[in-house]
Design a protein around this nucleic acid. Structure first.
Lengths: 342, 342
DNA sequence: AGTGAATTTGCAAACGCTTTCAAAACAACA
DNA sequence: TGTTGTTTTGAAAGCGTTTGCAAATTCACT
């Protein structure tokens, strides 16, 4: 059956026969190489059109050509943050002629390494790494093999990988400042996964903003949310249980903010009157939650789009210098933060 | 560079040499074929482990083996509905040894057809079609070539394609009945994209429920939302502008429901006191929106998971009879519907 | 027309694997 | 021990491309 399927397809030889040239010439035409007479090129192209020929990507890449697919390694699906970035990637890829191979690692670092081997093995022409868990194991391989790749939301494990990432520190700094300007002095912080650089950068921004305004940093106001809604719920609840509970909470991402909102509501606190809550990322849900979440907008789609473009550029021109791009964020003011009630 | 990358990899011949057998034997071991002495098998396996060999999928599939990748055709990304299904697919694929190739058609029917050709060309072993726009053009090809595929949320263009889809009619029927049981008599309906079967099925369910309770069907209460939030906003607004506005709205999907919620809020109507709103799908946002959306839960992940399993089964055993699976839905009662206020 | 250089072409050898076929090895039996 | 049948093995032929190399053609000059 497989056999019959294959044999029914037209190959490079078929079109060579039909157009009266050798199949190497056909290959040249197909790959837009020099040294083929315009006249023959025409013939070949005509045959291609007539027989509805499509290349066999496998054969092409086996023979040393490009595979025209790029690989995307994501930790998981179904998280607004990742979904947005993937959309950007998809967008960047559209009309590039490249296909997308999706790998979900589900936070298994070992899986990442295994996948990588296959991917580099010729399956893909380049790699997009989205918040890789622990890339130290294979990043060197990638570099040595000169394999094109771009890291999105790079977590500071090296300083040579081409990267696109948002300015986490500055964003957190100005978000916290916004809360301070609203009059808040006791500001809780829900920390993200501590092993991630972005979490730490945001935390630093938070602390520095406090300091800049002469507000003492209180370690008790910092709880761990691990970038997860459920964990953050408990963490926020703990914060809100205090006699001297904060009047505002800065959550390390929107999911954490949602957890905090749930906790607040559950304690009968009104948002933003009793407590202001501020998120990070601006995933789609942030706008549809009630009250709508005030949050730091990371240009997620943009990040995906830019990373893709960088990658395609590297593939096309391996000599290009590796860039590290830091994107601006934007504070999106909605309804979850209010001036401190006197 | 490409060259050097490749040559550095260990191939089937390397491990043949190391383990002292012919490379055909290695191939047999790798593919778990019969007729190889346990002893040699051991040797080979040992060499594989020692040299960290990984097969080259391209070569394998070129040679007539399987490619171990399945293709997924989706109309677009970044829509909660699709995201959930994809999660299910990813889940179904995990530990199956299959990789996922993602194709976004952005609702371009012609794109679908083109992609398909390449995909069937040996790039993939099977295909998952998610709400395909207009598959009539290529479905026959697929069938003729006996290419394994499964349609998710099939829209009624044929009755032979293997499918998994939710029971839209029954779901809409009981959802509407729920509203009626709450005392509502004037129930608005936001219609989905009319060319999609699921939209029509839901509409039928709505109408039949009314009829079953002796409520006259009023065409003016039906507006078009096209499964989009923005369009539904306008549509719902039109509904709510009426002097005899409905006391409940059944939206064809959650996105439409969100649009309706926005419209209601915008008119100062309280949900669910002034107006009840009911959705369809139960995408993640439905739970986080306020008030939380009462909606029909389609088992989206489950659909993805089941479709994937079916597909893998077909690939493994092409003789399997093609099934069409209809999944139960569930009414998830949250806070957006209330008994009719007297 | 003749020469050398430049351009265009085709042949053949990969690429890494699967699979057919026939030979080799083994086992079982008379 | 010779025959036959069965299992295991290896050699070789692809799979559909790309590409290096050499042959063939074309071109620009004498």
């Amino acid at each position: 059956m497989n056999k019959s399927r294959r044999s029914s397809h037209v190959t490079i030889k078929d079109i060579a026969r039909v157009s009266g040239v050798s199949y190497s010439t056909v290959s040249r035409v197909l790959n837009n190489k020099d040294h083929v007479k315009p006249e023959k090129r025409e013939q070949v192209l005509a045959a291609v059109a007539r027989l509805q020929y499509v290349v066999n990507p496998q054969a092409r890449s086996l023979a040393g050509g490009r595979s025209n697919v790029i690989g995307l390694l994501v930790p998981e699906l179904g998280n607004g943050y990742i979904g947005e970035v993937v959309r950007g990637i998809d967008d960047g890829l559209s009309s590039s002629g490249y296909d997308l191979m999706l790998y979900t690692t589900h936070r298994h670092a070992d899986k990442e390494a295994t996948y990588l081997k296959t991917l580099v093995r010729g399956l893909t022409d380049g790699l997009l790494l989205l918040v890789p868990s622990d890339p130290r194991g294979y990043l060197d391989t990638l570099r040595q093999e000169q394999f094109p790749y771009v890291v999105i939301d790079h977590q500071g494990f090296d300083d040579f990988s081409p990267t696109v990432i948002a300015k986490n520190y500055q964003a957190a700094l100005s978000a916290t400042t916004y809360l301070i300007d609203l009059g808040h002095r006791r500001i809780g912080f829900i920390m993200g996964q501590r092993h991630l650089n972005s979490a730490n950068e945001r935390f630093k921004g938070y602390r520095d903003a406090l300091q800049a305004h002469g507000i003492a940093f209180e370690p008790e106001l910092v709880v761990d949310g691990e970038f997860l809604q459920s964990v953050s719920y408990a963490a926020a609840d703990q914060l809100l249980a205090r006699a001297d509970r904060p009047t505002a909470i800065f959550a390390s991402n929107d999911l954490c903010a949602f957890g905090a909102m749930d906790a607040a509501r559950n304690r009968g606190l009104s948002i933003p009157n009793d407590i202001s809550i501020l998120g990070f990322d601006d995933i789609p849900q942030a706008a549809s939650v009630r009250p709508a979440l005030t949050t730091v907008r990371q240009p997620l789609m943009e990040m995906g789009r830019i990373a893709t473009r960088m990658l395609l550029d590297y593939i096309a021109n391996p000599q290009l210098p590796r860039e590290r791009i830091f994107l601006e964020t934007e504070l999106v003011i909605r309804d979850s933060c209010a001036p401190l009630q006197p």
